[in-house]
Amino acid sequence: MSAKQTLTTLIMALALIAVGTIAAAGDVPEQVSLDTMAKLFNGVEFDHAMHTDLGEDCSACHHHTTGTGTSNERCMGCHAGSDEATTVRCSGCHVAEPFSAKHINRDASNRYQFHIDMPGLKAAYHWNCVGCHEQMDGPTGCQDCHTRTTAGDDFYQINVVHAEAAGRGGH
C-alpha cells in the first residue's frame, strides 16, 4: 500500500477500522479496541465479555467461523459443519479497504459464492452492532458509541450557522 493510500485512509476512515486487540488471557478477548485508524471519531472499547454474557450464540456475530455451527441460511450451504476457522477476528475476513484496487482485482478463484460481496470491516461492524442494537434497544446514534474528534467536528462543519437561524438571532 502506498503512503498516499495510507494517508487517504487515515484522513477519511471512521473510527471503526481496526484490528481486534486481544486484551485477555485465552482465546476469547474481554475487550476489543476498535481504534487503530480513529480520526473523525474516537476509538471504541468494545466490551466483548459483556456481549458474550448476553448468551447469544457466537455465530450471531461470528457467522461460521467459531465452530459452533451457523444459523445463517446463506452460510449454511457451505459451512453447516465447518470447524473453527484459523482466525475468528473480524478483520481476518472483513478487509479494512474493500475498495482498494488490490482487493477489487483479487484472484477470481478465491471469490466464493457469497464472499464476492463481503462487506469491508467498517460496514461489518456497523451492520452487526447497529443491527442488533436496534432489535435489543441498544445504543444506535453515531456518538453513542464513538464521540467525534475535533477533526470530526470540522469535517461535519458543525460550526456553520444557517442564515435563517442567524437572522432570528437578531443580527
Binding site: 498516499k4 467498517k122 460496514a123
Partner: peptide
C-alpha cells in the same frame, strides 16, 4: 489513481459499493 470516490470511502454502511461495473451488475 485507482481509488474509490470520497463518498464511498466515508460511508459507514457500505451503502455505496465501488467496483467494476460488470462485477457490480452480478453483485
Amino acid at each position: 489513481n485507482g481509488l474509490p470516490p470520497a463518498c464511498v470511502d466515508i460511508c459507514p454502511q457500505e451503502a455505496l459499493t465501488f467496483g467494476k461495473r460488470k462485477d457490480l451488475i452480478k453483485i
